[in-house]
């Protein structure tokens, strides 16, 4: 699989390590009343779709940036890749 890195261009997926569903960016609020439930769902439950899947890849053997890659889990086709930093900023997660 070739991942189209937004800064470095096409890179072999072997240079990356895989974390999982991109929903892991959305860490719950630990002060919420139902924080226990929220953290249970955040940590353990997954949508696990067959088809387009947004997921976190870390460019460990490269520029050490986190990417959000959209990939089809049925065909392994990579649809897009964006910097996780930009995704998190758009969600108001980061400064």
């Amino acid at each position: 699989m070739i991942i189209p890195h937004p800064l470095l261009g096409p890179r072999d997926s072997q240079e990356f390590t895989y974390l999982g569903d991109a929903s892991l960016i959305e860490r719950p609020d630990w002060q919420a009343d139902n924080a226990v439930d929220q953290f249970h769902d955040y940590l353990y439950l997954r949508d696990n779709p067959a088809g387009a899947h947004r997921e976190l890849w870390f460019h460990e053997q490269g520029d050490r940036s986190w990417l959000v890659v959209t990939r089809d889990t049925v065909t392994h086709e990579i649809i897009s890749a964006e910097l996780a930093r930009d995704v998190a900023k758009a969600k108001g997660r980061s400064k």
């Binding site: 999982g20 569903d21 696990n48 779709p49 067959a50 889990t73």
Partner: peptide, 17 residues
Amino acid sequence: SSGRVMAKAGMRLPIES
């Protein structure tokens, strides 16, 4: 196929395929 089938019952599982 656990994730796919149980999603039809509205469930999310502690499972990745």
